[in-house]
Design a protein around this nucleic acid. Structure first.
Lengths: 134, 134
DNA sequence: CTGCACCCTGTAGTCGCTACAGGGTCAAGA
DNA sequence: TCTTGACCCTGTAGCGACTACAGGGTGCAG
């Protein structure tokens, strides 16, 4: 009655069915009980746990970090320093990626800004990829 | 005399040896002649082509796009509209990624800003990952 | 002639999914 | 009752762009 099929869980969380099975194989989501017909039968705890995973993935955490966060989230009494450290690491990683991409964007915009719709021989974009300007 | 070993080429371009061989397998870099001892013997054309590939990779172009850019770069007389389109697509992709990462950064910063170094039970970060605040 | 740095091929692993293939289950409609 | 079709199951292979071996060959300096 109150259990969910894997398809139900997928619809409710926005995580594809295949990905849910993948998380189970990777040990992120506990194996749910099965019905007579060998279908997975999820309960509310599973939905909460999967929502946690999805939120963490949306913030770019890797599966190893999420495993650690889930472990930490289960130990209510411990100080949250480790959680903090994981979030800080993730923030640093995100900032590094933003910096890389921002440099790429500037170079691409500059290339496109100099494009005079010439032939390839005079093309500023090709020229820069060749290394004429650095 | 004027040929380069794969290691020389790697040092001069900053592209690892294994990656050079990978680009050859993928058809991005033409197969060079071999020495008697079956070593690859590169010439200046290879170095220029590899530098072009590296520059394109640094701007985030995928290998398929680079293959197209290399083909276009070889036809000097044709208009550079296609080059322009590839660069525009790449810029759009980079901007999409920046937008995603910027949203992640904001949320992570906000989470960390609210962290009061509590126990996990009261941890703002864990709380948000659980979905308390949206 | 021996050691060492370098080179060769081929294959498997990384991350986080995604896409089958080849089957089983189940509820609704004819 | 039968059949259709949506859903579910397992297991395996593929993606992109490398990276890391294993197990061997080459070439040069001391």
């Amino acid at each position: 009655m109150s259990t969910l099929s894997i398809g139900d869980l997928a619809r409710r969380t926005g995580v594809p069915v295949e990905t849910i099975r993948y998380y189970e194989r990777m040990g992120l989501l506990p194996k749910p009980p099965r019905t007579e017909g060998n279908y997975r039968a999820y309960e509310a705890t599973h939905e909460r746990r999967l929502a946690f995973i999805k939120r963490s993935r949306d913030l770019g955490f890797g599966l190893d970090a999420i495993r650690a966060l889930l472990d930490l989230a289960d130990g209510a009494d411990r100080p949250c320093g480790e959680v903090d450290a994981l979030a800080r690491d993730q923030l640093a990683e995100v900032e590094r990626k933003i910096a890389d991409l921002t440099a790429m964007r500037a170079e691409l915009q500059d290339m496109l800004g100099h494009c005079r719709n010439d032939t390839v021989a005079d093309c500023e974009i090709i020229g820069r990829l060749r290394g004429a300007v650095e």
